[in-house]
């Protein structure tokens, strides 16, 4: 009996140890996986990663567009991108691992404190690029009014201006002759130029809205199909511009592009 008890006790202990082993192995696997996931998330080299600024209010106006954009980039261009969306708060250190960030806005007002403004100021001075997409379709108040005030603070020395249609942005991949969007609030893009390239690009034409689909694959936001295609091309060009700068304004491209535009 005593032996049986001891036997049972030993079996119990073995079970316990076995369970502990399984738990530790499981923990190790989970930790390793998480580590690899984190490594994968943060290690990017020169690869493109879709990064979006999170702020108090409706920052995520088009929550699935990034996925389709990343997929489209991979199939259409030679860009190597990380199939993740990096969500960044203005004061996150990870901002400085993300040379291209998106600020999306609609009806909610974007408010940034002085420290966040300072961080974004440093970000563009150090070579970062901000693309702002306003999907509200309203000019002069709400998000538009607020973001213009913020742009003034981020880039006081290089005020926002209309981007001419012959700029490298409009030929970085597709040759574009006009500015389109899911909605057309402006027939132009605006931006702040630091040196030879635009470090802030501002669109009020809901370019991300042109990509947004539901789970069944239907476009959520209505738009003329040709206009939607032109909006997609413009957004793709903006991403290419963030990765190649004014490459397409180089002399070597001029005659080719002029011939194609004839």
């Amino acid at each position: 009996m005593i032996t049986q008890i001891f036997k049972d006790d030993t079996t119990y202990r073995e079970h316990k140890l076995h369970r502990l082993k399984l738990f530790l192995i499981g923990l190790y696997v989970i930790l390793t996986f998480n580590f690899l996931l984190l490594t994968c998330l943060y290690s990017q080299g020169g690869k493109f990663i879709f990064s979006q600024l999170q702020y108090a209010g409706g920052w995520d106006t088009r929550p699935t567009a990034w996925d389709r954009i990343s997929e489209y980039l991979l199939t259409t261009t030679s860009i190597k991108s990380i199939p993740e969306r990096r969500i960044i708060k203005p004061n996150d250190e990870i901002l400085f691992w993300s040379p291209f960030i998106v600020i999306a806005g609609s009806n909610d007002i974007l408010k940034l404190n002085d420290s966040e403004i300072h961080t974004l100021k440093r970000y563009i001075i150090c070579g970062g690029m901000i693309f702002i997409d306003d999907s509200s379709g309203k000019k002069g108040y709400g998000f538009d009014k607020e973001i213009r005030e913020i742009i003034k603070k981020i880039s006081p020395e290089n005020p926002i201006e209309k981007i001419p249609i012959n700029d490298a942005i409009f030929k970085s991949f597709y040759l574009l002759k006009s500015v389109s969007g899911r909605i057309i609030t402006n027939r132009y893009l605006e931006g702040c130029k630091i040196g030879e390239r635009y470090s802030i690009i501002y669109s009020q034409n809901d370019l991300f809205g042109a990509w947004e689909k539901d789970n069944l694959g239907n476009y959520i936001y209505p738009c003329n199909e040709q206009q939607r295609w032109e909006a997609k091309k413009l957004l793709l060009n903006i991403i290419l511009y963030s990765l190649t700068g004014t490459y397409k304004s180089d002399t070597i491209h001029k005659s080719f592009i002029q011939n194609k535009l004839k």
Partner: peptide, 28 residues
């Protein structure tokens, strides 16, 4: 391929008045 490494280095070289840069990026 287009990359942040290219965009940073290209901007630096382009801003240098002592350099005449000719670059090719394989876009597709």
């Amino acid at each position: 391929q287009p990359s942040f490494n290219y965009s940073f280095l290209r901007t630096t070289l382009k801003n240098d008045p002592n350099i005449e840069l000719v670059s090719f990026v394989i876009l597709r």
